[in-house]
C-alpha cells in the first residue's frame, strides 16, 4: 500500500513519539528519519519497531519522520500504525 495523504500521529510530550508521514512516488523506497532523546541507546530498536509496523502493513514507499521523546515500543507501534492509516485514509473513529 502507498500512502496518499500527509498524516501525523502522536504528540511532543514526554514518553510519546510524533510520527509524520509524507507520500512519495512509487519506487522511491522507504526513508525513515528518526530523532530521539534516547538516540544513542535505542536508535536501532526504534527503527526496527517502525520497520516492523511498515512491513506488517505492507508499506514499501514512504517518507516517515519520527521525533521520539522516549516512547515505549507499544506506543511507537500504535503511533506509526495510526499515522499510516490516516495517510491511507482508512483510520476510523478519530480526528
Amino acid at each position: 500500500m502507498t500512502p496518499k495523504f500527509k498524516a501525523q500521529a502522536g504528540t511532543f510530550e514526554s514518553s510519546d513519539i510524533m510520527v509524520l508521514i509524507e507520500p512519495v512516488d512509487e519506487g522511491t523506497g522507504r526513508q525513515v528519519d528518526l530523532s530521539s532523546t534516547v538516540m544513542l541507546q535505542f536508535e536501532e530498536d526504534i527503527k526496527a519497531t517502525i520497520n516492523q509496523v511498515l512491513d506488517a502493513m505492507n508499506v514499501g514507499h514512504v517518507h516517515l519522520i519520527a521525533k521520539d521523546k522516549g516512547a515505549l515500543t507499544p506506543t511507537i507501534k500504535a503511533r506509526v500504525e495510526t499515522a499510516i492509516k490516516r495517510s491511507l485514509g482508512i483510520q476510523e473513529g478519530t480526528l
Binding site: 500527509k6 504528540t11 510530550e13 514526554s14 510524533m18 509524520l20
Partner: peptide, 19 residues
C-alpha cells in the same frame, strides 16, 4: 507538559498546510 501540548496543537494545524 504544557509547552509540548501547545506546540503539538499548533503543529497539528500548521502541518496540514505547510511542509
Amino acid at each position: 507538559a504544557a509547552f509540548a501540548q501547545i506546540v503539538t496543537h499548533l503543529i497539528d494545524i500548521v502541518i496540514q498546510k505547510h511542509n
